[in-house]
Every structure is written in C-alpha cells, then in structure tokens.
Measured scan of single mutants.
Amino acid sequence: MLDDRARMEAAKKEKVEQILAEFQLQEEDLKKVMRRMQKEMDRGLRLETHEEASVKMLPTYVRSTPEGSEVGDFLSLDLGGTNFRVMLVKVGEGEEGQWSVKTKHQMYSIPEDAMTGTAEMLFDYISECISDFLDKHQMKHKKLPLGFTFSFPVRHEDIDKGILLNWTKGFKASGAEGNNVVGLLRDAIKRRGDFEMDVVAMVNDTVATMISCYYEDHQCEVGMIVGTGCNACYMEEMQNVELVEGDEGRMCVNTEWGAFGDSGELDEFLLEYDRLVDESSANPGQQLYEKLIGGKYMGELVRLVLLRLVDENLLFHGEASEQLRTRGAFETRFVSQVESDTGDRKQIYNILSTLGLRPSTTDCDIVRRACESVSTRAAHMCSAGLAGVINRMRESRSEDVMRITVGVDGSVYKLHPSFKERFHASVRRLTPSCEITFIESEEGSGRGAALVSAVACKKACMLGQ
C-alpha cells in the first residue's frame, strides 16, 4: 500500500517536472537572447534605426563620474514606483581627507489618484512632500541643488532636461508624456511658492545606482535594477552614441532593455503563462523582457503555473481556492519566502493557508518547484541581457580580458534567497573573457542622484555659470 502511494507521488512529481521543464533555458538559448539583445542595442544607438529599435539606448548626458572633490548639501528625489523618497545628502571631506556622503531620508507613498490623475496632481503632491521634508529638517530658507531620480523612459536633451516617452509600472498621470519632466517639477514648486529649489540633474535609477557604486569602486561602469521592473545602464564610447554629437570619451546610456521583445525577438521563448500575464497587464505587448524578470510579474506567473497544475490534477487534489483564482493573489514576496523555507515546509504551508488552501507535504514541495522554475528562468533571462552589455563593452574597448564592476539594486536581487547566485553564475558562463565584480548599492537611487548633481554643480562652477 505504502509502495503504491510512494509510486503515485513519484509519478505525480515526474509529471510536474515535465510541465515545469518549459521554463528551462539551455545555454544556447541564452546565447541567442544575448546576441539578439546586442543587435537591438546597436539599432538603438544608431541614428537611422533608433526610432524602430525596441531597446532605445537613451543617452543620459552623464559623462563624468564623481571624483571626490564636490562638497555641499544636496536634496535628492526618487520616483520610480508607488513609494517616493526625499533625501538630504551631505557631501563633504571625511576623516583623513576621505570623501564622505551622509544621508537623511523619508519615504512617502503615492496615492492612487496622483498616479493615475493628471501630471499637475502628481507633481503638486511631490512638491508637497518636499515642503514637508524641508519643514522637518528646518531647511526651507536654503535654496538647495536638487537631483531627481526618475525611473521611467526619458529622452534627455541635457542633464536637466528630459522628455517622458511613456509611463510604465502602473503610472498613468495624463499630460506628462511628451513633456519635460524637470519643467513639470519646477512648475509645481513655483505653484507652491513656499520654498526654492535648483533642479540641476535628472537621472534614471540605473544611472543613480551606477554612480553610487562608483563611489565604492571606481571600476563600476554598469548599473542595473532588478526590482519591480528590470533595466540597466553602462558607459558607452561616445563615438557609438549617434544621437549625441561628439566622439570623445564616454557617456552613460540608459538601455531601457525592459522593452526588448516588443518587436518579436522573444516570441519563441514566451510561454502561455507569459501571454496571460501580458494580456492582463496595463501595457499589453510592451516591456516583454521586463515581464519575464521583474517583481511586478513574478508572483503572478507562479500563480498561473499553480492553476495549470491544479487543472492537471497534480496539486491540491485538483481544487483551487477562490483566493488562488484571484489575479495578483500570489505576491512576489511569497516566491522569495517559499524558496527561503528551511525544509520543514512550515513557511510554505503558512503562505498557502493564507490563500485558503490546506496543502499536503507533496503540495508544498511542488509549489516550491514552481517558484524555483519561474525565478530561475528570470535570473537566466536577466543574465543574457547583462552578458550582452558586458561583452559589447569588452569588444568596443578591444580588451582581451576586461575587469568590470556592476552596481545592482532592486528588491528581487536583494531579497530573493537564490536569485543573485543563479544570476551571477549564468552571467559568468556567458562572459568567459571578463572578470566581473557585483556590488549592491546602498540607498543607491538617492545618493547617486545627489552625486550626479554634485558633478553638475562642479561643472557649472568651472564653466562660470
């Protein structure tokens, strides 16, 4: 009897593995994704193909990295998701002549009506938060230079001027797309009239992360975010950046690689679950690469896999709870928690219980395998993109072996128990001629924006502006 049951459990697990095998990517698959990513990057950089390229390769006008001589107080704003952060950054000489960066910050959550109302409502709310922060720190009387981390696709015309191309991540505030974001912020500050600010720089969160990590390690020339969304930036040779005049030196390019796949480059790798996630998203047909990796989508992918296993009578005796059938019910943090389970399955059992399920031991094991399959594919897909960037940098610099540091931020990278190990191992397999160091950014977005502002202020002083 026991043997029969054991055989049935083994057969069930084997069927589960057959279904989950769809998520496995072979090294040849990853090399294919990497080569296609490089081709799209090239198209994004070139003037004649930029418009139709899915990977936009947006110039950021960040050319210099901090040298350690900029000092002063800077205000930093960070808008990239449902939370908005205001930070005071003091850049100065530390002990023994070292450079020191001290920060104080406060988080504000953005109400739904500000995210989806008008641009005026959104930026009025942001300036209200700045006003509140300055009151708390008794700094209303000071006109501070301000660095703005704005983590949406922007076409820069200068370091302090950028046109919002399109909202992502659930934002829909009308009247912002096609307009200068810094102008919208300046107008809102003017409307309030109770404080003055000098907006000197606007950067993407990947750029802010790279600059913040450069402060720790001067070989950091790539910034990457794996959180709600997924994106990367890197220092490109100016001669390859056709959208900006000049051939000397390097400029940081914001790849906006989340949109890779929007022209069909990933079609052969998309599964039924991916198509369902895409169809029910706020932007169907867009940001397809990001939807395979980002935390906004990972939990939902797992939920759809679990429903398939229920329908195949391989999980929960073929019956799903009402909660499990509800879109968004299986949160991405559950994926991390399930994979963090120590082996007694308590954590998995508790999560499934909150979803109205009474799982068996085998159910718990199957749910864990589903989570591992989805998150491992995410790590491997992400590795193909980064390997594409790094191999490109090595080739354009004609280096036999390139040493490089990548600064990384984002909740999936930082909080998932195995993502970074799987990701690092896969990147290294795909970049055999590179020695890569990964560092995690601390308060990256805010500190990085302030350091970019410090560079901009120093330049302005040198130019006598």
Rank of each mutant, 00 (worst) to 15 (best):
L2W: 10
D3T: 13
A6T: 15
A6G: 10
R7A: 15
E9V: 09
E9C: 14
A10Q: 15
K15C: 14
K15R: 15
V16F: 09
L20G: 10
E22D: 14
F23W: 11
F23N: 01
F23H: 03
L25S: 15
E27F: 13
V33N: 06
V33S: 01
M34D: 03
K39F: 09
E40I: 06
D42Y: 10
D42R: 04
D42C: 07
E48A: 13
H50Q: 10
E51M: 07
E51Y: 02
E51N: 11
A53M: 03
A53C: 11
S54E: 11
L58C: 12
P59L: 01
Y61V: 03
Y61I: 00
Y61E: 00
Y61L: 07
R63L: 00
S64P: 00
T65A: 09
G68V: 08
S69P: 09
S69Y: 10
G72C: 00
L75T: 01
S76F: 03
L79M: 09
T82R: 13
T82L: 12
V86K: 00
V86T: 05
M87E: 04
V89T: 06
V91F: 05
V91Q: 06
V91T: 05
G94Y: 07
G94R: 09
E96F: 13
Q98T: 09
T103C: 14
H105S: 10
H105K: 10
P111S: 13
D113L: 12
A114H: 14
A114Y: 15
T116M: 10
T116A: 13
T116W: 09
G117K: 08
G117R: 11
G117P: 06
T118L: 06
A119I: 10
E120V: 05
E120W: 08
D124R: 03
Y125G: 11
I126F: 08
C129D: 04
S131K: 02
S131W: 05
F133P: 00
F133T: 06
L134H: 05
L134W: 02
D135L: 05
K136G: 11
H137V: 09
M139H: 09
M139Q: 11
H141R: 03
K143G: 03
K143T: 01
K143W: 01
K143R: 06
L144W: 12
L144H: 09
G147K: 06
G147V: 01
T149S: 11
S151K: 12
S151V: 11
S151G: 08
F152R: 12
P153I: 10
V154R: 09
R155A: 14
R155F: 14
H156Q: 05
H156M: 14
D158L: 15
D160M: 09
K161I: 15
W167T: 15
W167Y: 11
K169Q: 14
F171Y: 06
K172M: 03
A173E: 08
S174L: 04
G175T: 04
G175V: 05
E177C: 12
G178D: 12
N179F: 13
V181E: 06
V182E: 15
V182I: 13
G183T: 09
G183S: 08
D187A: 03
D187H: 07
A188F: 02
R191V: 05
D194A: 10
E196M: 05
E196P: 08
M197I: 10
D198Y: 01
D198K: 01
V199F: 08
V200G: 02
M202G: 03
M202F: 06
M202N: 02
N204Y: 02
T206R: 00
T206G: 04
T209R: 03
M210N: 00
I211L: 04
S212E: 12
E216R: 03
H218M: 11
H218Q: 03
H218A: 03
C220S: 09
V222S: 01
G223F: 06
G223V: 01
G223N: 01
I225N: 02
I225Q: 02
I225F: 02
C230A: 14
N231H: 00
N231Y: 05
A232S: 07
M235L: 08
E236N: 00
E237A: 05
M238H: 13
N240Y: 01
E242S: 03
E245Q: 01
D247Y: 06
D247P: 01
E248V: 04
G249S: 04
C252I: 09
V253L: 08
N254M: 08
E256R: 08
E256V: 12
G258C: 15
A259P: 13
F260R: 01
G261M: 10
G261D: 02
G261N: 06
G261H: 02
D262A: 12
D267A: 06
E268N: 09
F269G: 02
L271Q: 00
L271G: 01
E272V: 02
E272P: 02
Y273T: 14
D274C: 05
R275V: 11
R275F: 15
L276C: 09
V277Y: 09
V277S: 08
D278C: 12
S280W: 08
S281Q: 07
N283T: 15
P284Y: 13
G285Y: 12
Q286L: 14
L288T: 15
L288S: 14
Y289H: 15
K291C: 10
G294C: 14
G295S: 13
K296N: 13
K296E: 08
M298W: 03
G299M: 01
G299A: 07
E300V: 00
E300W: 01
L301R: 07
V302Y: 07
V302E: 02
R303G: 01
R303F: 03
L304M: 07
V305S: 00
L307K: 05
R308C: 01
R308I: 03
V310M: 07
V310S: 10
D311N: 05
N313D: 08
L314D: 08
L315H: 03
F316I: 11
G318Y: 06
G318I: 02
G318E: 03
E319P: 14
S321T: 12
E322F: 13
R325F: 15
T326Y: 12
R327G: 11
G328F: 04
A329V: 12
T332D: 10
T332C: 13
T332S: 09
R333F: 04
R333M: 13
F334L: 15
S336N: 01
S336A: 15
Q337G: 06
E339K: 01
S340L: 06
D341C: 02
D341Y: 02
T342D: 02
T342G: 02
D344I: 08
R345T: 08
Q347R: 04
Q347M: 11
I348Y: 04
I351V: 04
S353W: 11
T354M: 04
L355T: 04
G356S: 03
L357G: 08
R358M: 14
D363H: 00
C364R: 02
V367G: 01
C371G: 02
S373G: 09
S375G: 07
T376S: 08
R377V: 00
S383H: 00
S383Y: 01
G385Q: 08
A387I: 02
V389Q: 04
M393D: 11
R394C: 03
S396C: 10
R397C: 13
R397L: 09
E399S: 11
D400G: 02
D400E: 05
D400Y: 07
V401M: 05
R403V: 09
T405L: 01
T405S: 02
G407Q: 03
G407H: 03
V408E: 09
D409R: 06
S411C: 10
S411R: 08
V412F: 09
Y413C: 05
Y413A: 08
K414F: 12
K414V: 09
L415S: 11
P417D: 13
K420E: 10
E421R: 10
F423A: 14
F423V: 09
A425D: 10
S426Q: 14
S426W: 07
R428V: 14
R428F: 13
T431R: 06
C434Y: 10
E435N: 12
I436A: 09
I436R: 00
F438R: 01
I439H: 07
E440W: 08
G444S: 09
G444W: 08
S445Y: 13
S445H: 12
R447Y: 14
R447W: 11
R447T: 15
A449G: 13
L451C: 12
L451I: 11
V452N: 02
V452F: 09
A454V: 11
K458R: 14
K459G: 08
A460I: 05
M462W: 12
M462I: 07
L463G: 12
